[in-house]
Design a protein around this nucleic acid. Sequence first.
DNA 1: GTGAAAGCGCTAACAT
DNA 2: ATGTTAGCGCTTTCAC
Lengths: 335, 335
Amino acid sequence: MAVVKVTMAQVAREAGVSLSLVSLAFRDAYGVSEKTKEHILATAKRMNYQPNTVAARLARKADDTLGVFLLDLRNEVFVDMFDGMRASATEAGRELVLSVGSTGGELDRGALDSLIRARVDVAVAAGLLLPDEVLAKYRGRLRLVSVARVVPGFDSVDCDNRLGAALATQHLLDLGHRRILHLANRPSDGYLERRIGFEQTVRAAGLTPWVIDVDYSRDAAAAAIGPILDSALDSAQRPTAVLAHNDQMALGVLDALHERGLRAPHDLSVAGYDNTTLSRTPGIALTTVDLHAVDLGRQAAELAIWRSANPDEPVVVKTSTPTLVVRGSTGPPAD
Amino acid sequence: MAVVKVTMAQVAREAGVSLSLVSLAFRDAYGVSEKTKEHILATAKRMNYQPNTVAARLARKADDTLGVFLLDLRNEVFVDMFDGMRASATEAGRELVLSVGSTGGELDRGALDSLIRARVDVAVAAGLLLPDEVLAKYRGRLRLVSVARVVPGFDSVDCDNRLGAALATQHLLDLGHRRILHLANRPSDGYLERRIGFEQTVRAAGLTPWVIDVDYSRDAAAAAIGPILDSALDSAQRPTAVLAHNDQMALGVLDALHERGLRAPHDLSVAGYDNTTLSRTPGIALTTVDLHAVDLGRQAAELAIWRSANPDEPVVVKTSTPTLVVRGSTGPPAD
DNA sequence: GTGAAAGCGCTAACAT
DNA sequence: ATGTTAGCGCTTTCAC
């Protein structure tokens, strides 16, 4: 299990050229004759040489590495975003350093610090949970592009969540629902838009919004909706439809229904948010809002790359438009 | 968006001490008086200093960084493994460098090379697809701990897939099934055990194994099973049960059933493999085999850490035991 | 307990 | 086109 580490200097010696030539040959290759370049690359290959990116990143003054923070790999929407980021990073020939939030605890805090320690040029962050004022402390220390959340003072690529929630809510209203419950995430900076979109739309229909805050998780959503389904209240007071903050939480609602022998949309219409592959699964068929996560990821990485070349331009906020995807989990109310 | 980079030298100057003291203070702290240590840490904090891990890794002779390769973030089993890896890496205070396979193309090839370039001490790899002989070329260049696949010449943490497949198959046999189809992955080094476990168990019951090779994906599985469901053959020749290579592919089978207005287990019993959270979803409720992915990840990272301290010990192969999880997607045959 | 100095393996001027 | 040399920001002897 001994490991041999080949250095550039060894390749240079073996090839009978100077260090810098090898360095050049492995990069732009301008100013290196085609012949020596081939010779160098050939010897390098024969020696199984792989350039040391750690040393390269240290030596390179302006670092061109992109950092990525993802809140949670279990929520596929972040994986979608990552795919998009990687696509544009690859096209631009940028390295990517991944940092994943650990569930619970100081999630993003540690992850952002680790990106600073890794001295990434720009960090693309999806699922930042820290309040605006805490993030503000990162200004001047880390260039940040926030995905799917607007953070004052930083670049961001957002999707109009207010609109998305409005679309889903209107869909439920159009189906005839009047008692619609919104399972919202706990109020926090940058993540209030879905709630607002819901409330505005419900009010516009002359109804009073009904919102419950729930922790961001499938199980928490199931636990929250359970008592409501069980309540001995006059059924006229129970919701006929639920809009969940995201697909994961919508899944929790389905879990709770299933435990009670109920099902969507017959006993309750259920709508989610994110359009993860979960939602297209038969037996789930979740009506949901597509925020085009892959595309958001692409754009965020592109913005990050642009930013590293334009450090002095003012903050950029891009916003895209979500789409409603109607599937089988929503339908007219039973009564 | 200008970013200020604080260096250790600046902290040293500001604190009025030498570089080495700052370096020491940030690590073991042996040989630094409690007083100066506190003073240094305080100034560092005031200056928002974060140690540069890139420089640190270059300077440190023996690198203690763990590399991680994951084939695919969309398969939750890899995320489970990652959770386990991170848990033990964190406990041991090791840095983690993540490399994710891109779907399609030279998946692991590039990812492994990138871990070599990052000069990780040991790489923990989940979902290696390269044939044994290609991986053999990495000997002497990269220390590898393979998860859920045995690779000759390298350390590995495996789960007895032959047994797992046998458990699932026996379960189907016990239910009374006689025409069981195994949707296997394409034969490749290290991933034949499930197939073998299936075949052995079916033969032991005096039956002839029925196996179809399918690409590793939900859609491919759906496409493969579709024609079989549609076949105008005498129903006596259609399968009454399917064992899929993993949960993703089992989901593809459910997709195909659903498209045709059929359902499990009534029209076809379906069993998967991996016990991802997908499988516990109501409306899916997949019978599956739990290979305890989080635990595999933990053990793999622990083995990797042990290996970096014991480079000369012989290759280690650990094997754990999977568990059958029976849910609603399997039942007695209809006829 | 503390400081000085020599690298780690590259990149990027700057020479030639 | 090619070679020389000075760092990049740390860690790590080795003196004091």
